[in-house]
């Protein structure tokens, strides 16, 4: 994952509350390998008719090169399916602006370089009002957590850790492996305190004393 600091692109309004993960990507597409791309599945059943033809005035159909989505409360609620984020990212979306996000969706987003930018309900109202006549160019700055839309600048809320992660494009596995020793020590202590933390059916495993050996 590569990091980023600012992004300028076209913003579209998805004027709905509770855009859940089942809408973002219907389950039937999720057996597809990621290498085939998930962009075409994004909001599939909302933006395409049952014969697969696109509904022309659906926001992201009208502006296929949009990279910023402005929506309403509880965006990404529901499932832990990271495929919902893949669909957005593969479509070309870099930022979603909304008053609130599903907790798991938000952390999945950050793990894929997608910014979940939280702003107030009133700011969303105002932004959506500005987009009624069509998409507009918007600039998002991660370093000072601001969104510039026309002549207004609004601040968004984002956890500091997530801000750093997005800017640096950090990969957690690399970070964690630096703590190998602490993990091993903590594991040994944990297993001593609760030996059943290693399931008892794994008798061979325990008698092999792997439970006190670091990985």
């Amino acid at each position: 994952m590569t990091g980023w600091c600012t992004h300028t692109g076209l913003a579209v309004a998805l004027d709905r509350e509770n855009v859940d993960t089942d809408q973002l990507i219907p389950a039937r597409f999720m057996s597809t390998p990621r290498s085939e791309g998930y962009g075409d599945f994004l909001l599939h059943d909302m933006r395409k008719k049952s014969d697969g033809t696109p509904i022309p005035d659906f926001p992201i159909n009208a502006v296929p090169d949009a990279s910023i989505v402005i929506s309403r409360r509880n965006f990404g609620s529901g499932s832990s399916r990271e495929a919902a984020v893949y669909a957005l990212v593969d479509f070309g979306i870099r930022v979603v602006i909304a008053p609130s996000f599903g907790d798991i969706f938000a952390s999945n987003s950050v793990n894929n370089g997608l910014l979940p930018a939280r702003v107030s309900e009133a700011e969303v109202d105002a932004a959506i009002a500005k987009l009624v006549d069509g998409a507009q160019e918007v600039t998002v700055d991660l370093t000072d957590k601001t969104i510039r839309l026309g002549n207004t600048t609004i601040e968004f809320t984002l956890d500091d850790v997530w801000q750093q992660k997005l800017i640096n494009g950090w990969d957690d596995i690399d970070l964690t492996q630096k703590h190998k020793r602490a993990i091993a020590a903590s594991r040994a202590q944990h297993v001593q305190r609760m030996p059943w933390a290693i399931p008892v059916q794994q008798t061979n495993f325990r008698s092999a004393r792997r439970d006190t050996v670091s990985q």
Partner: peptide
């Protein structure tokens, strides 16, 4: 708690 695919890999 439920986690996404990147976290599952982690």
């Amino acid at each position: 708690f439920g986690i996404g695919a990147t976290e599952v890999a982690h």
